[in-house]
């Protein structure tokens, strides 16, 4: 090879055929194989990211004062990381439940429908039971991710996340 990247044989034989600019079958296959390798790497990356994400189940954290959440009302927060939307619902008295807001179908945000007494995903009409988060209807394959919460000294604490 010369400094300009031109092969020696090309310098000694400087003639070009019209077909030289076309992509050969082998070159095309090489591109395809490279694409397959990139997608395999992407899949491995997603698997690793998923594994790392499941390790972080959160640490105990003060969320909100109990009195700031009315009975039958909700409060939005982020847990276990700032990228994970979550919602706590006050049921009766000191009883509270909290779930990840990500629908287990395709990750849309769920919200509490008080008049229907259920968690509802508006994207594909998925519905979840209020207290347990199990699927009532619609396409979601799994219950909502549950966040352990308890009331300490008049404040709601998140203790951990169960995907």
């Amino acid at each position: 090879m010369t400094d300009e990247g031109v092969p020696v044989w090309r310098r000694d034989f400087p003639y070009e055929a019209a077909a030289e600019d076309e992509v050969t079958r082998r070159e095309f296959t090489r591109y395809l194989v490279a694409g397959a390798a990139v997608m395999a790497a992407g899949n491995v990356g997603i698997a690793a990211w998923t594994k790392l994400r499941s390790i972080n189940t959160g640490e105990a954290r003060d969320i909100v004062a109990l009195d700031d959440v009315p009975v039958g009302g909700t409060h939005l927060f982020r847990y276990p990381t700032d990228d994970d939307p979550a919602v706590v619902l006050r049921l009766e008295g000191d009883e509270v439940v909290a779930f990840s807001q990500k629908c287990t179908h395709l990750g849309c945000v769920v919200y509490f429908e008080a008049e229907e007494d259920r968690w509802h995903c508006p994207c594909h009409e998925g519905n979840f039971e209020t207290r347990t988060g199990v699927v009532l209807s619609g396409p979601p394959p799994r219950p909502l991710g549950r966040i352990d919460v308890e009331v300490r000294d008049g404040r709601i604490w998140a203790l951990g996340y169960e995907p």
């Binding site: 990211w49 998923t50 499941s54 990500k102 629908c103 395709l106 394959p141 799994r142 991710g145 995907p163």
Partner: peptide
């Protein structure tokens, strides 16, 4: 899709 839905 599984990643978006949190399916491990």
């Amino acid at each position: 899709e599984a990643f978006a839905a949190g399916d491990e």
